[in-house]
Design a protein around this nucleic acid. Structure first.
Length: 237
DNA sequence: ATGGTAGCCTTGCTA
């Protein structure tokens, strides 16, 4: 089972690249972030035309997540549990056979010292709490995650890992300077400077079955690309 | 040189 994740920075602006990636990489499940459109505006016909199903929650201009999958999603949870008044669509989770997959788009949190940073840290606390509940169920699951560099955010990211999750990329790639994100600004692509902020985090039952994990640089090299590029892993299920 | 770029329905905000 091949699971991929991609922050597309507008699914409508990235539609040709998205369709090309689905045809090239053939993932069983693709987690999308920053779709930036309402569910009713998601380009369903084009994606379904390639034989994929779509579950999504979104808003106009900001945020939005989706699960694109070969088989229909089951037991969909849209929105991060634990806060009824959370209006930002940043989390969607569903089962595909025996594997549970979540597409997670963390709040950026800048600038520090504002309510946006407070919101980020609170959101991460809720993600840790919800992950603890998922672990209790002892099923294989995969979280797609995005964490920036603030110490408080890093501490919560470590707390998430220390619940017992495995960073799939590091199982196969100990080397430094491997990035999923390169800023549009300051020639970061050409200078090969970026951040590894798109992660596939595996539950113990999923980590037992990890067979491969890689970052696909090709979509970032295209014209009008997202500033993020896909990461994928293969589970022996 | 605190710059630079992309997306959105915008004249700024978010990343």
């Amino acid at each position: 089972m091949k699971i991929a994740s991609w922050n597309v920075n507008s699914v409508k602006a990235r539609l040709p690249h998205l369709l090309a990636f689905l045809e090239d990489a053939q993932p069983d499940v693709l987690c999308l972030q920053e779709t930036k459109c309402l569910a009713q505006d998601f380009p369903m016909l084009e994606v379904k035309g390639l034989g994929y199903h779509v579950e999504t929650i979104g808003q106009r201009a900001y945020n939005g997540v989706a699960l694109v999958s070969r088989r229909p999603a089951e037991e969909v949870v849209a929105g991060l549990p634990g806060n009824g008044e959370d209006e930002q669509p940043r989390y969607i989770e569903a089962s595909f056979g025996e594997v549970r997959v979540a597409s997670v788009y963390l709040p950026n949190g800048n600038p520090v010292g504002t309510d946006k940073f407070t919101y980020k840290l609170g959101w991460m606390e809720r993600l840790i709490g919800h992950t603890r509940e998922l672990l209790r169920r002892e099923i294989p699951f995969v979280l797609r995650d995005d964490a920036l560099c603030r110490l408080e955010a890093r501490a919560r990211f470590r707390a998430l890992l220390y619940l017992g999750l495995t960073d799939a990329y590091r199982v196969f790639h100990p080397e430094p300077h491997r990035y999923t994100f390169r800023d549009y600004q300051a020639g970061r692509w050409h200078r090969d400077e970026g951040l590894r902020i798109d992660h596939l985090l595996l539950s113990p039952h999923a980590a037992d079955r990890i067979a491969a994990c890689s970052i696909d640089k090709k979509p970032r090299a295209k014209d009008r690309s997202s500033d993020h590029t896909p990461i994928w892993c293969e589970l022996a299920v």
